[in-house]
Design a protein around this nucleic acid. Structure first.
Length: 259
DNA sequence: AACGGCTCCAACCGCACTCGG
DNA sequence: TCCGAGTGCGGTTGGAGCCGT
């Protein structure tokens, strides 16, 4: 567990995001408590998971729901009620939080609409059918349904990842700091574009440094870091560049996992 | 320009569930 | 079977930014 006293709360910083992304890519998006520990983030596993799932996952869409998505949410809510995660699975690129937030807004608007309608014609019945009852909303049959089978977004689980045995990992954790760190290789740092850099493949002392590219495609003003795709992930090797415990957000260490 | 109300969304909380020892 | 740790889920809250007055 993360020490209560040290646990951070509130908005995530860019630096924390970078660290989290790195460790999720390294260990997968399952072992959240473990990731919280080894990453040095002063966050709980829960908090890490939430940040990843609701904000950083590569397949997430940003921005407002499209009319099609809205229609689908309405349809599925009629079917399943407040089963947000279930609904979200049928709406590619959207999280349960997105759906939930949308629904709250929707309900508020609808409530206001009802209020107005009642005020203008108090004898008319409600237009609403948005509860979790089994009734279908008007026009539900014509609503386009997006199924997971025709979803085109790429989930994190489709990305190649590098995994390590728990023994290797614990061995690494127990290493003294100076044994873990090797010099980072930087290229093309551009202050204006953010922390854009790339690193090259080098071999020193039985340690292979694989290429790991963070360039304008993945981390720039124009393209969010979190729209990264599979190219973000390293393909092979057991050492990679990492952003860790950065005291300022342009400083990177490398992460040596050689066994 | 200033202010207040509203909207949207990120993040937290607590409970439920799962799984391994 | 029981227990504890980890994870998932739904509800709720806080704050930043937008908009109307």
């Amino acid at each position: 567990m993360v020490n209560e006293e040290e646990t951070r709360k509130g908005p995530w910083t860019e630096q924390e995001d970078v660290q989290l992304a790195f460790y999720v890519n390294l260990f997968g998006d399952r072992r959240w408590d473990f990731i919280a520990k080894v990453s040095g983030l002063k966050r709980t596993g829960k908090s890490c998971r939430l940040r990843w799932v609701n904000y950083m996952h590569p397949s997430l869409k940003r921005g407002k729901l499209s009319p099609q998505e809205e229609a689908l949410v309405l349809q599925l809510h009629t079917k399943w009620g407040n089963r947000w995660s279930k609904i979200a699975r049928k709406v590619p690129g959207r999280t349960d939080n997105d759906i939930k937030n949308y629904w709250r807004t929707h309900m508020r608007k609808e409530a206001q609409g009802k209020k107005k309608a009642n005020m203008s014609s108090p004898s008319t019945t409600s237009l609403s059918s948005s509860s979790s009852s089994s009734g279908s909303p008007t026009g539900a049959d014509s609503i386009p349904v997006i199924t997971t089978s025709n979803a085109t977004s790429i989930g994190a689980d489709q990305c190649p990842k590098v995994y390590y045995s728990m023994d290797e990992i614990w061995k690494h954790i127990e290493l003294p700091e100076e044994d873990k760190i090797i010099n980072p290789v930087f290229h093309n740092f551009n202050e204006e574009l953010g922390s854009s850099f790339s690193c090259t493949s080098t071999t020193t002392n039985n340690t292979t440094m694989i290429t790991s590219i963070w360039d304008d495609n993945y981390y720039s003003n124009n393209t969010s870091l979190w729209s990264m795709d599979h190219q973000y992930y390293p393909e092979e090797g057991n050492v990679m560049m990492m952003p860790s415990a950065m005291t300022d957000h342009h400083q990177f260490d490398s992460f040596n996992m050689c066994s």
